[in-house]
Design a protein around this nucleic acid. Structure first.
Lengths: 205, 205
DNA sequence: CCTCCAAGTGAGTGCTCACTCATTTTTATT
DNA sequence: AATAAAAATGAGTGAGCACTCACTTGGAGG
């Protein structure tokens, strides 16, 4: 009889994500994973050949999951929308913000490991970064052609937008204020405002 | 007689920074540090009580160094300059870009470890993040009062600018193109352009 | 109720690696 | 040149931890 309809493998994976994101991969002992997952240490090695296999399994599955949620979905939502660009952008950033916040543990694990492990970095680039950039650049390029956006290098615009959102998330995650979600909406619309209209005051207007 | 006028301690520190930034703290063996530094393994422990002490020494020194270079210097340069705001911003970003790029190894080490080690994160926040934000916000607030900048939340503007620069650096560091430094200047002036004037095309103008 | 097998267990093992310390080498002092 | 002190060495040690394996448990099928 299953306790919770959650498989042993999932219990191990979930415990690992939590611990890896808290303490890092190397500082997490397999004995801790076992304890947190509520299984014996030996059980772990019936599902994963090595500790590193747990990490790679997490990374591979997550990248697959995100490459769908991050790319296929927004591609249709964003590129074929009839809303004004301002709203599309706000929707997109909000979407991204929520997705990243909700999955922050796992993203933190992947991000941390990507810094020192080329193999993980390559997967991230190949399956996430390149495609995300391509879609973003295409969106911006379309905007230029429609006369909505100024003729600036799309790559730079997209990268800067992404950096702005990432820093917002980092701030929220690492210095959590007890703020309401309304502030997030406001932050995001401010970011959209900055990118759309700039920060320079226009006296002549 | 000293070989190079570089002390044993410095040799150990330098080797550690290089290895930590490449492979991460945990995956770096003290034997490797010794080999790279050109000293015996035992020598390391005459200068540092533990391996972790090496890391903490690196972090502490670097944070001290950066809190001067990043804060005192720009405070005077930026807040008391007579140049137009556009140029100040470009100078500032260029300055930051070069500082971070030049010291990327050590910044990568601190950043990586800050993700999982609260103690390091706290130091980073206390000595770098808060002060940097304060100065940036003050600069922007002044600009608002002078009628140069629009009345947007300074924190959001500064954070987004920082995110944009960090992503530029990340791209350069992790997918190094054989680009010339001219591209960097162009990237930075594009970022300034985006922030000053926004991306929206102004037909009426 | 018995049989069988997959799933789970956890004490034990061996290997890796941070750290020690008795010894050697270098430097400073007279 | 002699002596003392400081610095450096690296083989050795022990602790921690990933992983193993002989054994137990649970439950499906007859």
């Amino acid at each position: 009889m299953k306790k919770d309809d959650i498989s042993t493998e999932e219990k191990i994976i979930n415990a690992s994500i939590e611990l890896f994101s808290e303490k890092g991969f190397d500082s997490t002992k397999t004995s801790e994973i076992a304890k947190n997952a509520g299984v014996a240490e030996g059980t772990i090695f019936r599902y994963f050949k090595t500790k590193k296999d747990i990490l790679m399994s997490i990374v591979t599955k997550a990248i697959q999951f995100f490459s769908e949620k991050f790319i296929v979905l927004p591609l249709n939502k964003v590129l074929h929308s009839e809303k004004p660009e301002e709203e599309i952008l706000a929707d997109l950033l909000k979407d991204r913000y929520e997705m990243i916040s909700k999955n922050f543990s796992i993203i933190k694990v992947i991000g941390t490991e990507a810094l020192t492990k080329e193999k993980i970095r390559e997967k991230l680039v190949e399956h996430i970064a390149i495609k995300t950039l391509e879609i973003g650049e295409e969106f911006y390029q379309n905007g230029i052609e429609k006369g909505i956006f100024r003729d600036l290098p799309p790559r730079t615009v997209v990268r800067s937008l992404f950096g702005s959102i990432m820093m917002l998330i980092a701030e929220q995650q690492f210095f959590p204020h007890d703020k309401k979600s309304k502030d997030v909406d406001k932050e995001i619309s401010t970011i959209v405002e900055i990118f759309m209209n700039g920060i320079k005051s226009r006296k002549e207007q």
